[in-house]
Design a protein around this nucleic acid. Structure first.
Lengths: 215, 215
DNA sequence: ATAAATATGTTAATATATAAACATTTATGT
DNA sequence: ACATAAATGTTTATATATTAACATATTTAT
């Protein structure tokens, strides 16, 4: 039974993992799977899997389990992967180029429409057949091209300025790789990738034993 | 009062953010801060901030608040930033190079000791004065050099193989950029950076309204 | 010097997330 | 065809995380 209530972030963040594991099952020609089997592979409890999926519909069948293809398609739909998205990357440095070259995103339906930078040395070079443009031309570009997702790969100090341009030009989703928190209106979605935070979490855990043990 | 109990991941993942915000306060020559003020900047509740910090010690003073410098140093210590870490990157492609060139990590004490790849076109090139070595020489390198953190930037299919080498050679912390879950013993820490999952979360949220609204 | 304001660490209450239990349905095997 | 096993969706219980409340201590202002 569908629930119209808000889905929690905890559930949302598990969805891509379901999508990935189901894709692998498909590749291995496995046609059906139970929550118990999936549980053993993916590492969530079977109960959690059933509850998560039930937020969106009754995809399984008692006594049988889930049809892999069907469930994969449903989750693709839930994740919004049945359409394409246009994107721009601001910042053609290391991370910007890495993201631009990540071919997987294209396969998932994310089309890179433009790359911008302010460094004259980078403006004009080509990344995947896309010429890096001057960031001064970003506003005009966004007026002429409907862009769904803005990707910020500039240094911390310039990130908010880019975000402001995005917001002004009506972009509703920002993927932010700059190590800062962006200030945007409520209706704009920001997804952060904070590499330093990830690394510091790792170093914390590497030291945790010492932290409490040696006193 | 110190609590010897396990710190939850929810708390751990907030620590780097405290570190970042306190660093900014220091840069702005702010010497003291209350949980209330910090709350307004960082976006957590004041209550949560006090509880989080109290997992590790009594760093504040009633009526005064927290000394910024002192608290920053304490959190640095908690995060394990008072020592340096040696690292290797496996995979000199886009992401590997991006991580290698991220100068911030060096400032935080993460020293890149080696970069490895299996692509003959990449072996021999220099990234930040470090010559990319053949991944076949990785095991030997790890025997001769004490490495704290192994960074995996290879394609999905090769990631587990690299992780196995890491484990075999005694590495206890893995930073994994490959879009797969690694199988490692309990005493080895894995921190994942799954860019696709982050992007799919964004696309989900961008579509959430439509998902429930149009039926 | 005293009163009011500030702000902590800690305890209690609430909210959220996860796991277990269960009634019901379907599939499977004899 | 029938009994047993499998596995769902859902409800209930437990655990975890967050927020609010409060007693106590320090600072600041008069």
């Amino acid at each position: 039974m569908n629930k119209k209530t808000m889905i929690s972030m905890a559930v949302i963040r598990r969805l891509p993992k379901y999508h990935r594991y189901l894709g692998e099952l498909l590749n291995n020609d496995i046609t059906r799977i139970s929550s118990k089997e999936l549980s053993e592979r993916i590492g969530f409890t079977a109960s959690q899997i059933r509850q998560d999926l039930n937020c969106f519909g009754d995809f399984g069948q008692q006594g049988y389990g889930y049809n892999v293809r069907e469930l994969y398609d449903e989750i693709s739909k839930i994740l919004g992967l049945t359409r394409t998205y246009t994107t721009v990357i601001i910042g053609a440095g290391n991370i910007g180029q890495a993201v631009a070259n990540y071919s997987k995103f294209e396969k998932l339906g994310f089309e890179l429409k433009g790359i911008f930078d302010k460094n004259p040395k980078l403006i004009g070079i080509k990344i995947r057949d896309i010429e890096v443009k001057d960031v001064d031309d970003l506003s005009e570009f966004l007026e002429k091209n409907k862009i769904d997702i803005g990707i910020i790969c500039v240094p911390r100090t310039q990130a908010q300025g880019i975000a402001d341009i995005f917001v002004k030009k009506g972009i509703k989703a920002i993927w932010n790789f700059a190590p800062t928190d962006l200030n945007v209106p409520e209706d704009v979605i920001v997804e952060n990738v904070h590499l330093s935070e990830s690394l510091l979490t790792l170093s914390y855990r590497l030291n945790e034993a010492k932290l409490f043990g040696e006193e």
